[in-house]
Protein backbone atom coordinates (compact mmCIF):
# COMPACT_ATOMS: atom_id res chain seq x y z
CA UNK A 1 0.00 0.00 0.00
CA UNK A 2 1.25 3.44 -0.83
CA UNK A 3 -1.00 5.30 1.58
CA UNK A 4 -2.08 3.77 4.84
CA UNK A 5 -4.16 5.51 7.51
CA UNK A 6 -4.89 3.62 10.70
CA UNK A 7 -7.23 4.82 13.42
CA UNK A 8 -6.96 8.43 12.29
CA UNK A 9 -8.96 10.75 14.48
CA UNK A 10 -9.14 14.53 14.26
CA UNK A 11 -10.70 16.42 17.10
CA UNK A 12 -11.67 20.06 17.38
CA UNK A 13 -12.41 21.52 20.78
CA UNK A 14 -15.21 24.00 20.43
CA UNK A 15 -16.40 25.79 23.54
CA UNK A 16 -15.53 22.89 25.82
CA UNK A 17 -17.17 20.33 23.53
CA UNK A 18 -15.10 17.90 21.51
CA UNK A 19 -16.03 17.69 17.89
CA UNK A 20 -14.83 14.74 15.86
CA UNK A 21 -13.95 15.91 12.38
CA UNK A 22 -12.59 12.42 11.73
CA UNK A 23 -13.29 9.39 13.87
CA UNK A 24 -11.11 6.26 13.73
CA UNK A 25 -10.54 6.36 10.00
CA UNK A 26 -8.80 3.44 8.37
CA UNK A 27 -7.92 4.02 4.76
CA UNK A 28 -5.45 2.60 2.35
CA UNK A 29 -4.66 3.32 -1.27
CA UNK A 30 -2.38 1.48 -3.60
CA UNK A 31 0.11 3.11 -5.90
CA UNK A 32 -1.54 4.19 -9.14
CA UNK A 33 -5.07 4.05 -7.84
CA UNK A 34 -7.80 6.58 -8.64
CA UNK A 35 -10.05 6.95 -5.61
CA UNK A 36 -12.89 9.31 -4.84
CA UNK A 37 -13.91 10.53 -1.43
CA UNK A 38 -17.50 11.68 -1.27
CA UNK A 39 -19.83 12.90 1.42
CA UNK A 40 -21.95 15.80 2.50
CA UNK A 41 -20.58 19.18 3.34
CA UNK A 42 -18.79 19.38 6.66
CA UNK A 43 -18.40 15.62 6.90
CA UNK A 44 -14.59 15.79 7.08
CA UNK A 45 -13.44 15.19 3.48
CA UNK A 46 -11.03 18.10 3.33
CA UNK A 47 -9.69 17.26 6.76
CA UNK A 48 -8.93 13.77 5.55
CA UNK A 49 -7.32 15.02 2.38
CA UNK A 50 -5.09 17.43 4.29
CA UNK A 51 -3.99 14.69 6.64
CA UNK A 52 -3.12 12.39 3.75
CA UNK A 53 -1.18 15.18 2.11
CA UNK A 54 0.85 16.01 5.23
CA UNK A 55 -0.68 19.45 5.57
CA UNK A 56 -2.52 18.55 8.74
CA UNK A 57 -1.71 16.14 11.55
CA UNK A 58 -4.18 13.74 13.15
CA UNK A 59 -4.80 13.73 16.89
CA UNK A 60 -4.76 9.98 16.94
CA UNK A 61 -3.77 7.27 14.54
CA UNK A 62 -0.94 6.96 12.05
CA UNK A 63 -0.39 8.03 8.49
CA UNK A 64 2.16 6.11 6.49
CA UNK A 65 3.02 7.15 2.95
CA UNK A 66 5.55 5.13 0.98
CA UNK A 67 6.57 3.47 4.22
CA UNK A 68 7.22 6.74 6.01
CA UNK A 69 5.44 7.80 9.18
CA UNK A 70 4.36 11.39 8.72
CA UNK A 71 4.05 11.88 12.50
CA UNK A 72 7.79 11.40 12.81
CA UNK A 73 8.58 14.20 10.41
CA UNK A 74 9.41 17.73 11.50
CA UNK A 75 8.22 20.79 9.65
CA UNK A 76 11.15 20.83 7.24
CA UNK A 77 10.82 17.16 6.40
CA UNK A 78 7.05 17.32 6.07
CA UNK A 79 7.32 20.37 3.84
CA UNK A 80 9.76 18.54 1.67
CA UNK A 81 7.39 15.58 1.60
CA UNK A 82 4.53 17.79 0.38
CA UNK A 83 6.80 19.42 -2.13
CA UNK A 84 8.15 16.20 -3.64
CA UNK A 85 5.40 13.65 -3.17
CA UNK A 86 2.10 15.50 -3.15
CA UNK A 87 0.39 17.68 -5.70
CA UNK A 88 -2.49 19.66 -4.25
CA UNK A 89 -5.36 20.94 -6.38
CA UNK A 90 -7.89 23.19 -4.72
CA UNK A 91 -11.48 24.07 -5.50
CA UNK A 92 -10.64 27.77 -5.40
CA UNK A 93 -7.53 27.28 -7.63
CA UNK A 94 -5.51 29.32 -5.15
CA UNK A 95 -3.19 30.81 -7.73
CA UNK A 96 -0.90 33.71 -6.87
CA UNK A 97 -2.73 36.66 -8.38
CA UNK A 98 0.36 38.77 -9.05
CA UNK A 99 2.22 35.97 -10.80
CA UNK A 100 1.87 34.71 -14.35
CA UNK A 101 0.78 31.18 -15.18
CA UNK A 102 4.41 30.22 -15.67
CA UNK A 103 5.51 31.76 -12.39
CA UNK A 104 2.67 30.03 -10.55
CA UNK A 105 3.74 26.68 -11.88
CA UNK A 106 7.37 27.43 -11.02
CA UNK A 107 6.56 28.23 -7.39
CA UNK A 108 6.81 24.66 -6.00
CA UNK A 109 10.06 24.32 -7.95
CA UNK A 110 11.35 27.47 -6.23
CA UNK A 111 10.69 25.78 -2.89
CA UNK A 112 12.47 22.71 -4.26
CA UNK A 113 15.55 24.92 -4.90
CA UNK A 114 15.59 24.01 -8.57
CA UNK A 115 17.80 26.15 -10.78
CA UNK A 116 15.92 28.95 -12.60
CA UNK A 117 16.56 27.69 -16.12
CA UNK A 118 15.56 24.17 -15.21
CA UNK A 119 12.41 25.18 -13.39
CA UNK A 120 11.33 27.36 -16.27
CA UNK A 121 11.71 24.48 -18.68
CA UNK A 122 9.82 22.17 -16.34
CA UNK A 123 6.98 24.64 -15.77
CA UNK A 124 6.68 25.29 -19.48
CA UNK A 125 6.48 21.58 -20.06
CA UNK A 126 3.77 21.13 -17.41
CA UNK A 127 1.71 23.98 -18.84
CA UNK A 128 2.07 22.22 -22.22
CA UNK A 129 0.62 19.05 -20.70
CA UNK A 130 -2.53 20.94 -19.62
CA UNK A 131 -2.72 22.69 -23.00
CA UNK A 132 -1.73 26.19 -21.93
CA UNK A 133 1.51 26.62 -23.88
CA UNK A 134 0.12 29.84 -25.30
CA UNK A 135 -0.82 31.33 -21.94
CA UNK A 136 2.52 31.26 -20.10
CA UNK A 137 2.64 34.99 -19.48
CA UNK A 138 -1.00 35.44 -18.52
CA UNK A 139 -1.99 36.49 -15.05
CA UNK A 140 -4.77 34.45 -13.38
CA UNK A 141 -7.10 37.41 -13.87
CA UNK A 142 -6.49 37.12 -17.62
CA UNK A 143 -7.52 33.44 -17.70
CA UNK A 144 -10.89 31.72 -17.68
CA UNK A 145 -11.97 29.54 -14.76
CA UNK A 146 -11.17 26.33 -16.62
CA UNK A 147 -7.75 27.69 -17.63
CA UNK A 148 -7.02 28.68 -14.04
CA UNK A 149 -7.79 25.20 -12.85
CA UNK A 150 -5.50 23.82 -15.53
CA UNK A 151 -2.72 26.09 -14.31
CA UNK A 152 -3.39 24.72 -10.82
CA UNK A 153 -3.12 21.17 -12.18
CA UNK A 154 0.13 22.04 -13.94
CA UNK A 155 1.43 23.49 -10.66
CA UNK A 156 0.48 20.27 -8.84
CA UNK A 157 2.45 18.29 -11.41
CA UNK A 158 5.53 20.51 -11.46
CA UNK A 159 7.59 18.59 -8.92
CA UNK A 160 6.46 15.28 -10.46
CA UNK A 161 4.64 14.05 -7.36
CA UNK A 162 3.49 10.46 -7.05
CA UNK A 163 0.20 11.48 -5.43
CA UNK A 164 -2.22 14.15 -6.55
CA UNK A 165 -4.88 15.23 -4.09
CA UNK A 166 -7.71 17.26 -5.63
CA UNK A 167 -10.15 18.82 -3.19
CA UNK A 168 -13.33 19.62 -5.11
CA UNK A 169 -11.51 20.33 -8.38
CA UNK A 170 -14.75 20.80 -10.27
CA UNK A 171 -16.59 22.79 -7.63
CA UNK A 172 -16.04 26.13 -9.31
CA UNK A 173 -16.42 24.93 -12.90
CA UNK A 174 -19.34 24.26 -15.20
CA UNK A 175 -19.95 20.60 -16.01
CA UNK A 176 -18.05 20.66 -19.30
CA UNK A 177 -14.98 22.31 -17.70
CA UNK A 178 -15.29 19.92 -14.76
CA UNK A 179 -15.34 16.97 -17.07
CA UNK A 180 -12.24 18.29 -18.77
CA UNK A 181 -10.40 18.52 -15.48
CA UNK A 182 -11.37 15.02 -14.46
CA UNK A 183 -10.24 13.68 -17.84
CA UNK A 184 -6.92 15.35 -17.22
CA UNK A 185 -6.62 13.66 -13.84
CA UNK A 186 -7.46 10.35 -15.49
CA UNK A 187 -4.66 10.87 -17.98
CA UNK A 188 -2.26 11.49 -15.11
CA UNK A 189 -3.54 8.40 -13.34
CA UNK A 190 -2.96 6.41 -16.48
CA UNK A 191 0.69 7.49 -16.30
CA UNK A 192 0.95 5.97 -12.82
CA UNK A 193 0.15 8.83 -10.50
CA UNK A 194 -2.07 8.05 -7.55
CA UNK A 195 -5.11 10.34 -7.68
CA UNK A 196 -7.37 11.12 -4.74
CA UNK A 197 -10.36 13.22 -5.71
CA UNK A 198 -12.65 14.75 -3.15
CA UNK A 199 -16.06 15.60 -4.51
CA UNK A 200 -19.70 15.50 -3.89
CA UNK A 201 -20.48 15.27 -7.55
CA UNK A 202 -21.54 11.65 -8.32
CA UNK A 203 -20.51 12.14 -11.96
CA UNK A 204 -16.99 12.77 -10.85
CA UNK A 205 -17.11 9.83 -8.47
CA UNK A 206 -17.97 7.58 -11.33
CA UNK A 207 -14.49 8.02 -12.82
CA UNK A 208 -12.90 6.52 -9.74
CA UNK A 209 -12.04 2.88 -9.40
CA UNK A 210 -12.93 2.98 -5.73
CA UNK A 211 -15.21 5.38 -3.89
CA UNK A 212 -15.29 6.19 -0.19
CA UNK A 213 -18.02 7.90 1.75
CA UNK A 214 -17.48 10.11 4.77
CA UNK A 215 -20.30 10.69 7.22
CA UNK A 216 -19.79 12.65 10.39
CA UNK A 217 -16.12 11.90 10.34
CA UNK A 218 -16.51 8.21 9.66
CA UNK A 219 -15.21 6.66 6.46
CA UNK A 220 -16.73 3.73 4.63
CA UNK A 221 -15.89 2.26 1.28
CA UNK A 222 -18.79 2.18 -1.11
CA UNK A 223 -19.21 -1.23 -2.64
CA UNK A 224 -18.54 -1.23 -6.35
CA UNK A 225 -21.69 -0.76 -8.32
Amino acid sequence: MQIELTGVTKIYELGGETFYALRDVNFSVDRGEFVAIMGPSGSGKSTLANIIGGLDRPDQGTVVVDGEHLAKMGDAELSRFRNKKIGFIFQAFNLKGDATALENVMLPLVFARMRPAERKARATECLGVVGLSDRLGHLPSQLSGGQRQRVAIARALATRPSIVIADEPTGNLDSARGEESITMLETLNAEGITVIVITHDPNVGRHARRTFEVHDGQLNEKPAA
Binding site: G53, L55, D75, A76, S79, R80, R82, N83, K84, F88, F90, N94, K96, L107, P108, F111, A112, R155, T159
Partner: peptide, 16 residues
Amino acid sequence: TREIGVMRALGARGST
Protein backbone atom coordinates in the same frame (compact mmCIF):
# COMPACT_ATOMS: atom_id res chain seq x y z
CA THR B 1 -2.76 34.43 4.94
CA ARG B 2 -4.35 32.28 2.28
CA GLU B 3 -1.30 32.61 0.06
CA ILE B 4 0.83 31.47 2.96
CA GLY B 5 -1.38 28.38 3.25
CA VAL B 6 -0.98 27.68 -0.46
CA MET B 7 2.78 28.07 -0.29
CA ARG B 8 2.89 25.70 2.66
CA ALA B 9 0.83 23.18 0.65
CA LEU B 10 3.29 23.55 -2.21
CA GLY B 11 6.17 22.69 0.08
CA ALA B 12 7.30 25.91 1.72
CA ARG B 13 8.68 25.41 5.21
CA GLY B 14 7.74 27.60 8.11
CA SER B 15 11.27 29.02 7.99
CA THR B 16 10.88 29.76 4.28
